[in-house]
């Protein structure tokens, strides 16, 4: 008798659950994936950043700016992790950018517009290397674009 009651209550709960599932008002819409998820998460961002840094070091237009960083593995690591954190945080990922502000980091460097454009071209080449879709590429560049005023001619 006890088992029968347990079975009956289980069935009634299951039916109640099914009927609730049919109620369209209760269906919460799945949130659209943010840019971090659309880019592929931390591993995909890391792959793009590594490719970007390789492109920059191979680029004679700007590689002199990174000579000291490349010569020191600790500085290379710091720059790489800061770039990953910046893209990850800016795209809505679970990271926190811990580096200097763009203005602080580029103060006194007198970076020209041509150098900035060369850097952006190297980033786009890295994104293209991994076939990042146009929408995601534009969304990422839109996040990084406003930093230009803090980087150029400081």
């Amino acid at each position: 008798m006890k088992n029968y009651l347990v079975l009956l209550s289980f069935l009634s709960l299951t039916l109640a659950g099914m009927s609730c599932g049919e109620n369209k008002d209760d269906i919460t819409p799945t949130p659209a994936p943010n840019l971090y998820e659309r880019l592929g998460g931390i591993n995909a961002i890391t792959a793009v950043v590594d490719q970007f840094l390789a492109n920059v070091v191979a680029d004679n237009a700007i590689n002199a700016r990174f000579a000291a960083t490349v010569a020191d593995p600790f500085r290379t690591q710091l720059l790489r992790n800061n770039l990953i954190d910046q893209i990850c945080a800016g795209s809505g990922g679970p990271c926190q950018y811990k580096g200097k502000t763009m203005l602080e980091a580029h103060q006194g460097m007198q970076i020209t517009e041509a150098e900035f454009n060369a850097l952006v071209a190297d980033l786009i080449a890295a994104l293209d290397q991994f076939n990042v879709p146009t929408q995601e590429k534009n969304d990422l560049l839109a996040i990084l674009g406003p930093m230009k005023t803090d980087i150029v001619d400081q």
Partner: peptide
Amino acid sequence: YSPSQDLPLISITA
């Protein structure tokens, strides 16, 4: 903490 801390260290050589 940031997930980037768990990544293997790298070096860049030209």
